[in-house]
């Protein structure tokens, strides 16, 4: 009979309308910003730089090897390497980035910089409320804004951060007995990555 199909469809609409008052599954809208759905552990937005210890300058893990700058597909990282070396968090003299900028208006959150970094120095952040009133400078994050502590990293990606810490501890433990008999400089030069400049 003509019209039954439409009535059937209307029954579906009615069930959904009434159901949205009772069933959680049928009403999934979240009233942002009053309500927020939790972000999953793996959520990624823009990269940030990690520092160990309390001091953002001294504890920065990045050694300005420029690998991420080279691999970043849209080329939104800009690094200037320091001329001098300073001791890193393990006391080894290393270069450090004099300038480290990421233009987050260009960054496409692809995580490739994180994957290619040999020093676990750059990780993905979860902050997404970053709107500004300007198009240019406000969206270019410098070293100061990018540096965040390892504690912060643990708070946003607990599982991943624990894995990274374990990996670093293992590498440090392996290096110590190997570096002790040999001259300490030989150990450091081996672990210095090829500079990308």
């Amino acid at each position: 009979m003509i019209g039954t199909g439409i009535l059937k469809g209307m029954a579906v609409t009615a069930r959904n309308f009434v159901g949205s008052y009772f069933e959680k599954e049928r009403l999934i809208t979240v009233q942002y910003p009053e309500e927020r759905s939790p972000l999953p552990e793996n959520y990624r937005n823009f990269p940030f730089l990690i520092y160990d210890t309390e001091d953002a300058e001294a504890g920065l893990r990045c050694v300005a090897c420029k690998i991420c700058e080279k691999e970043c597909p849209p080329q939104c990282i800009y690094i200037v390497k320091s001329e001098d070396k300073k001791p890193d968090y393990m006391g080894k003299p290393q270069f450090y980035p004099k300038i480290f900028d990421i233009d987050i208006s260009v960054c496409m959150s692809c995580q490739i910089c994180v994957e290619v970094c040999p020093f676990e120095a750059i990780k993905m952040d979860k902050v997404f409320e970053l709107s500004t009133r300007e198009r240019f400078d406000a969206l270019r994050q410098g070293k100061d804004e990018l540096s965040k502590s390892n504690t912060y990293y643990h708070s946003i990606h607990p599982i991943e951060a624990a894995e990274v810490d374990a990996k670093l501890a293992e590498a440090a433990a392996k290096k110590k007995p190997a570096a002790a008999p040999a001259a300490p400089t030989a150990g450091t030069s081996k672990s210095t990555p090829p500079s990308g400049s």
Binding site: I2, G5, I6, K8, G9, V12, T13
Partner: peptide, 21 residues
Amino acid sequence: NRFPKFLDEFENLIVENEILI
């Protein structure tokens, strides 16, 4: 596992609908 339920419902909505046909 829940998806077939949605499909049944969606098919009810469209398959026999005279206007859609």
